[in-house]
Amino acid sequence: MMKAKLNIIATLLVLFSTTAFALEHPDDHSHDHGEGQTMDLKTEIKQTIKHHLKDAHYFELYHGLAMPLPVIIWDNGIHLFMSSSFDHGHTLANSKGNYYNLDHGKIYKTDSEGHVLDNQSIIDFSITKNVLVIILMCAFLLISFSKLARSYKKGPIPTGFGRILEPLVLFVRDDIAIPNIGEKHYKKYMSYLLTVFFFIWFLNLSGMMPLGINVTGSIVVTFSLALITYFITQFTANKNYWGHIFWMPGVPVPMKIILLPIELLGTIIKPFSLMIRLYANITAGHVVLMSLIGLIYAAQHWLANGAFFGLTLFLGVIELLVAFLQAYIFTMLTALYFGSAVEEHDDH
């Protein structure tokens, strides 16, 4: 019953993401890109995909309906105003006597004439589209899981949405944490593993929704996640872990010296591959899906249109699987690294 419901929801999501991307399909994004009005369809599709992959200072539900978001700039003091002041880059925003310009999603400090001041660097702490989605996702996770936690006070079996979430929590604990970290140490990592799993998975899924969200396809977000994994691994590691990095037991001394830089590099490569993997998978998925949707428009024959529609639908379903798989792999490898950090080598 629940499964059938989920299937229907998933199918609907794929269908609507197709139509929504279609709505997002740009008729005249020229003002964003500052190019001529005469763009052929191919360039348009390219621009749309590029635009979609980037973070934005607007939450664009579809073309023509864009929600302005707050801009926060650190420029010897905080400057706070709404991004509607830019009017999509058409005008300069004036805040406390300073002028800013929005060009290709980036904010530059300018003089009153609109000339970019190169020597003046500013830091952009704006609530961009991605930050907004992250905030909403945090709220969603907090509400749904604290609700699940409260439902245990009423009885041993959760009800409603919690009935879907509980098996997933058990899945993370029994299939990811315990086999990779071990019965003895897994408890202290559970909070991070569960948070990172649901955070990535739900953000991946939200990327499949027809809202043009692409948070986990942003290298900044995956970098932050991988960095936290890296720090937790290093700070909870026992002396065995460091022993294996700095002075590998059981190999001859020259080998130990050769292995030292390799092992040290390995500690950085591991989270780096986590970062790249998630970023690349999600980005690639979005690019492929949007290209196929673009092909539906580009194709001249109705038969080709239908074929590309079917292909998009198929790949959409695959992407739903990838959304889960990438969250799973990220959590799984994170757990594996934690496991290697607390592993106790009784055999040496």
Partner: peptide
């Protein structure tokens, strides 16, 4: 999946 993910990481890198 772990082994494939490790190779995939190299590929993406």
């Amino acid at each position: 999946i772990i082994a494939a993910a490790l190779i995939e990481g190299i590929g993406f890198a």
